[in-house]
Amino acid sequence: MDENLKEIVLENSESIVKMWMIEVAKLKSENYTATISDDLFENTNREFVNVIFESIKDGGSTKSVELFSEKIINLGWPLSYITDGLQVFRRVTIEYILDTTEKVNSGSFSVILTSVDQWVEPIIRQLVNEYSGSWENIVSLQRVALQELSAPLIPVVEGITVMPLIGTIDTERAKLIMENLLDGVIRHNAEVVLIDITGVPVVDTMVAHHIIQAAEAVRLVGATCILSGIRPEIAQTIVNLGIDLEKFPTKSTLEKGFMSALEKTNRKISDLDAAKEFDIEKLLNSIKGV
């Protein structure tokens, strides 16, 4: 940037900031930041413009740009806030320089445009790159977290594990379900695996096929698979599609599925209150007998 123009901008930074703040506020309803409180919006704008001026003073302050882009992502603000703000800053700066310059010929006007562009363009590229890189990293981490939560295998009691499924099941998620099932059966030494589809909104041919494959894989490693959460509408769909689930026990609720799993592992649930009452009565009778 031309040193004379740079000096003009830095010496009159307060005036340029005021103009910029006014123009940026007009865009609040256009760049998806209309719901943000006025105080937060104004404070962030001031931080934004400080980052811009730091860049021109230092010839490009990478750290401040990086921190600001991360802040915008954490706030959930769109990329358009950054690009719109910098475009407004370019326009306001050029207008201010033109207004303060006594005589502007075609040559000096071209110099002003070129100089401001050479200053603003690197900031735009850096902010956009930092924003995009941080966003991709966050999305990648979220994808991994969602995958870990999309097919959890929960050991309930010894020999019995439960996999509650929620949401739609596509090919990628079905592969993850299969991997988690087989790994969990071996790791927890499970005898019975309950796959609960209460939270699966739609069971079509593809979903049923994936579930059958998973249940068959569990059977091949020596465990039994029980399918629970068969709602009436899902049962009707399965019948209409001609899907054969005869090889695998099915239950309407997770509770019934768990009871069936207990039976298969030679367990049962006893009424503790009744057992205590029986013991007390037996003790009283024995005392009376004495």
Rank of each mutant, 00 (worst) to 15 (best):
T161N: 10
V221G: 13
E148S: 10
V203N: 10
G184E: 12
L176T: 07
E148T: 06
E158L: 08
L254P: 03
I177D: 11
G257V: 01
A190F: 05
P232H: 10
Q236E: 15
E158Y: 03
N240F: 06
L254A: 05
A217Y: 04
S260E: 15
I226D: 00
E255T: 08
L220M: 14
I238Y: 12
V185C: 12
E233Q: 15
E158C: 04
E263F: 02
I177P: 09
L245E: 07
H210D: 09
S228F: 06
T168Q: 06
A214S: 12
P201M: 14
N266D: 08
H209Y: 12
I234Q: 07
I177C: 10
V221S: 09
I238C: 09
S228C: 09
R231F: 05
L182A: 04
D244H: 02
F258Y: 13
D204I: 08
T168I: 03
P155K: 10
I197V: 10
E148D: 10
E172G: 00
R219E: 13
K264A: 05
I234C: 01
I195H: 04
L149P: 07
I211L: 15
A151G: 12
P249M: 03
D244N: 13
P232F: 13
P164Y: 04
G229Y: 06
I177G: 11
H188Y: 15
I160R: 00
G184M: 13
K251C: 09
V157E: 00
S252Y: 00
L176P: 01
A261V: 11
L149I: 14
R219C: 05
T224P: 02
L241I: 05
I226A: 02
V193W: 00
A151E: 10
D183A: 15
I160C: 05
L153S: 09
G242H: 08
E179R: 12
A261D: 11
M206D: 14
I169P: 04
V192R: 03
I211V: 06
A261P: 03
A215Y: 03
L254D: 02
V203I: 15
P249C: 06
G257Y: 00
Q147D: 14
P155G: 09
I186Q: 08
L182N: 07
P152H: 14
S252A: 13
I197P: 08
E191W: 03
P201S: 14
N180L: 11
E158I: 05
N240G: 05
F248N: 07
I166H: 06
I234R: 06
A174Y: 06
F258E: 02
A190V: 12
T224E: 12
V193F: 00
E255I: 04
R219P: 08
K247C: 10
R173D: 02
P164G: 09
S260K: 13
V218N: 02
G229M: 07
A215R: 04
L182D: 03
D170M: 07
K264E: 04
Q147F: 13
L149E: 09
N189E: 14
L165S: 11
L181M: 15
N180I: 03
I234W: 04
K251D: 01
P201A: 12
D170Q: 08
L227Q: 06
T265Q: 07
I212L: 15
S252T: 10
V221I: 15
T265E: 05
L245I: 10
P155Y: 01
G159A: 12
E179V: 09
D244S: 06
L176S: 01
T205R: 06
D204S: 05
E255M: 02
R231P: 08
A223I: 08
Q213W: 00
K247R: 14
V200H: 08
N180T: 09
I154E: 00
I166S: 11
